[in-house]
Amino acid sequence: MTETPALPHFRRAPVTEFAISIQFEALDKFNFAHIGPLHQSFASEFPGIEFHPPIPPMIEVFGPVTPTINLPFLLPWASIGQIPRMWMLDDKNEKLIQFQQDRFVINWRKTKENMEYPRYPGLRDEFFVDLEKLRAFLSERELGEIIPVQCELTYVNQVPAPEGVAELSARAFANWRELRPTRLGSPEDVAINQRFVIRGDDGGPIGRIYFQSAPSAQPVETRSVQLMMIGRAAPSSRSLNAARERLDSMHELIVLSFVELMSKEIQQEWEPA
């Protein structure tokens, strides 16, 4: 699969993890009895299975207050009778499908050094094929419709920082203003968080894009900076077609803004195509 021609891409993009997700209205009729049969629907491609606590809903809202505390985490989700989140893993442990009552995710992970990550159009198409499988499963058993309420893209990059985290940050970010040297020398760690509002056709807010850069928890000799990009927004209507359009438009925004935010120097290292 190739990227949309208008969008830049990199032959050696530092992507180590990539996920496409939609959140939908909770499928209340899906219960523990359906877990096995649902896995059977995916087992030929995703034979492995694991269970994890469900991810709380994450819906972007816009008011005058920017919350500094993530309040929904005060709700003890695991204790209120939720169906667990299923992980269905392929036999190479590279891709996994995650399903819970209100969320469906396809997740790619880099497991070997020379793996090229599946470009967005390819993973998106796989996502919708698998989502259709889920839709058919639900429909056969009259378990409800998938009504999307939020679309989400996540890219995780690991950028090696042998020269140090502060130095790498200064070299990698186009909008970085170098910290003046002090008697303390260079900062041991630097974290950068940027949050942008996505606006709809009428100018109203519909979602956000997060750029988050922080040192990875690795030994100093292999230290790197983890650069995570998350786009999350509501579809224009509660249909799967609208969800697909929103994912496409968020992907474009993420790619174009990523190119603007990263310095030309670091982009050269990733070999622009």
Binding site: E17, A19, T68, R109, R195, Q212, I230, R232
Partner: peptide
Amino acid sequence: AALLYRERQADAPALTP
């Protein structure tokens, strides 16, 4: 990486602190 995904997803909306 999978663990990272789960934790980071959970942390995502609260980028502060």
